[in-house]
Design a protein around this nucleic acid. Structure first.
Length: 217
DNA sequence: CAGAGGATCGGCT
DNA sequence: GCCGATCCTCTGG
């Protein structure tokens, strides 16, 4: 028997204790490495239909700062990367390898191109919907948003989100519920340029982190 | 205007 | 661990 007292009532789509605080631009550190570390443990929340949300805890990020040959902004602004040059807390979404989208958050003052790649999240709410978006019913919860392309698919994030201001737009929200995982650092994943820089950050012990186990001790 | 390459993923050896 | 899929963007001629 389950929920005998709430028979017929719709299940709450989203509940945290304590409820998360929405993070605005002023709450977010500027600076690429600082924001990459700060975002570990924070909540990524995407409201969908009927008051429901998709939500997950960010467990892996990578920094792409100034003077970084691996950054899309390294050679200056282009049509694609313009969101990287907006004030910090703007969203940059791009297509990689013709198959996956990647979600980034801009990190510096206007005119400076830099961003943090959101690489993985632990699903917390809207999990059935995420599994449907992935179209992989066999996956465990902690596999749904593991890896930057998978995260975008699980959250339904596509180029329509490119340029969105996390401070002002209701389509995507950063939240803080007070959790503070222990943070580890490593080299970034999948790069050919500047591969030695330890600009990847992750939540120690999370099963939702991508990459070989040895990268996330 | 052609061509190379890419912040990935999933399947296969 | 290796490889192909798939397509957009940027670069160079």
């Amino acid at each position: 028997m389950k929920s005998p007292t709430s028979k017929g009532a719709p299940a709450p789509s989203f509940s945290f204790a304590p409820p998360p605080k929405r993070l605005r631009r002023a709450d977010l550190p500027a600076g690429t490495l600082d924001l990459a570390r700060f975002l570990i443990g924070k909540l990524l929340i995407r409201p969908i239909d009927g008051g429901a949300v998709l939500a997950g805890r960010i467990v892996e990020t990578e920094a792409y700062g100034t003077d970084d040959p691996a950054s899309h902004a390294y050679r200056g602004p282009t049509k694609r990367n313009r969101a990287m040059f907006e004030a910090h807390a703007h969203v940059y979404v791009y297509l990689i390898y013709g198959t996956s989208y990647c979600l980034n958050v801009s990190t510096e003052e206007p005119g400076i191109g830099a961003a943090v790649l959101i690489r993985a999240a632990e699903p917390l709410a809207g999990i059935a919907r995420m599994r449907a978006l992935r179209d992989r019913p066999e996956l465990r919860d902690d596999e749904l948003a593991r890896g930057p392309g998978n995260l975008c698919r699980a959250f339904g994030i596509d180029p329509a989100f490119d340029g969105l201001d996390l401070d002002a737009d209701a389509r995507l929200i950063l939240g803080d519920d007070g959790a503070q995982p222990e943070i580890g650092a490593s080299v970034r994943i999948g790069l050919t340029k500047a591969a030695e820089r330890e600009h990847r950050f992750y939540a120690r012990g999370s099963r939702a982190v991508s990459g070989r186990r040895s990268l996330s001790p």
